[in-house]
Amino acid sequence: MKRFAPFLLLVILILFPLLVRDDYHQHLMILVLMWVVIGAGWNVIAGYTGQVSFGDAAFFGTGAYTAGLFATKLSISPWWAMAAGGVAAMAVAFPFGWICFRLRGAYFALATLALNEVMRHIATIWEDLTGGMVGILIIQTFVSKVPYYYIALALAVAAVIGVQAVMGSKWGYYFVSIREDQDAAESLGIDTHLYKMISLNIAAFLTGMAGSLYMNYMGFIDPEVVFSLHDISIMAILVGIVGGVGTVYGPVVGAFIMVAVHEFFRTGFFGFFKGLAALTGSQAITTLAKYVMQAHVLGFGILVVVVILVLPNGIVGDWKKITGWLPLGGGRRSAA
């Protein structure tokens, strides 16, 4: 069962647009897949290498702007920028790493956060290049969601398999050894600076690609959207920790849950409360529904607090714990 689960999941994902023909759900799935890519990237640098980055948006935004500028300044199809966005993000990652890797732990986190903000300011102020807050606007290539879906799926699958391959290689061992004990790793002759840089570049490449995909798919970006500390950097962390830090399928689970939870709250439990209010005709429930819908970020915050307290290794990491609580299953299954 355990061995076939990924393949089963893949088959379901490939068939998804054929089974569910409604644009709304396809759109949500594209977002999930995009977050899988970002989460996988964050997981490499933070989950495996132990360098908790608060600056993912710097890479995401760079990728998105690369695609946008390709289209507006060079008149090249923004699809070419899918790869270029990843490379541009890596170009940002070098100075980023050079500055931040001198620092450890919490300091590293702060430095990445600060650089994230610097990038956002640059994109805002440099109006001649980026258009400032007016943003960049391109016309999407496809009307249908299906091509975007498969591109996102391909990217997500490549990201997960790629990360798995890297983690199975020599690099992977070095990354984990840096996470576990940097000084010990160094004394064993591992060039920690180099491997942290490699790890960061993998993360940047993946996140940058996701950014380019976002530009292609959404057709509009501005600095507040793609360099957002809250909506990108912290969301990436949440995808990582909710899913499971340092696990291959953690970002997949995390992305799905975060997008679903967000939509769940936004629509008032998918119309659950509205239905309940209509069934009972109660004014109190209508009011309650309104409050629930308003509280979706609060729901997020509480989810984070609870997950860190109760499931410090995320859903995949602490899967046994979860199955132990559920009345169904009874703890026989283990981590996927």
Binding site: G105, I241, V297, G301, I302, V304, V305, P312
Partner: peptide
């Protein structure tokens, strides 16, 4: 609590910040 990342406390403060902000908005 045993966990892989030592920065759990920092992440926790992020969560607390979100909760405080949203409660205020509420």
């Amino acid at each position: 609590v045993e966990s892989i990342l030592p920065e759990n406390q920092v992440l926790m403060t992020v969560g607390i910040g979100m909760v405080l902000t949203e409660v205020a908005r509420f």
